[in-house]
């Protein structure tokens, strides 16, 4: 199981600013290990963010997103105390869902 995401959601000027740090190798499949063998690709392919049951961002990623991905975005229509739920799924079918309360 991957480590939890670090999510910060703050309400500023009527908009929710969300910053996420995910823990993932984001292995490209092009690198080789010490013995010269290719390391298989392992990367997040899908990211979804919802708030109050409504999707506020969805994304598809390739292996060229940096290791331990950082993501920031903004949306409107939510209040302090609401929850932002973020989930990702990688190319091996592993997934992780975390949430944060809007402050």
């Amino acid at each position: 199981m991957a480590d939890p995401m670090r999510i910060r959601a703050t309400l500023e000027g009527g908009k929710v600013i969300v910053k996420v740090l995910m823990a993932h190798e984001m292995e490209t499949g092009y690198r080789k290990d010490a013995n010269g063998n290719l390391i298989p690709a392992h990367y997040i392919q899908e990211v979804n963010a919802t708030c109050n049951g409504k999707t506020v961002l969805s994304a598809q990623w390739g292996p060229s997103v940096s290791k331990n991905p950082f993501l920031a975005f903004r949306f409107s229509g939510a209040n302090k105390g609401d929850k932002v739920v973020i989930s990702w799924k990688d190319n091996k079918g592993e997934s992780r869902t975390d949430e944060a309360v809007i402050a």
Partner: peptide, 18 residues
């Protein structure tokens, strides 16, 4: 990366790539 921006979300993205 490809981000879908639903109504209500700002057309703004910040991330890091290789």
């Amino acid at each position: 990366a490809d981000f879908s921006i639903p109504a209500g979300t700002d057309p703004y993205i910040s991330t890091r790539v290789k």
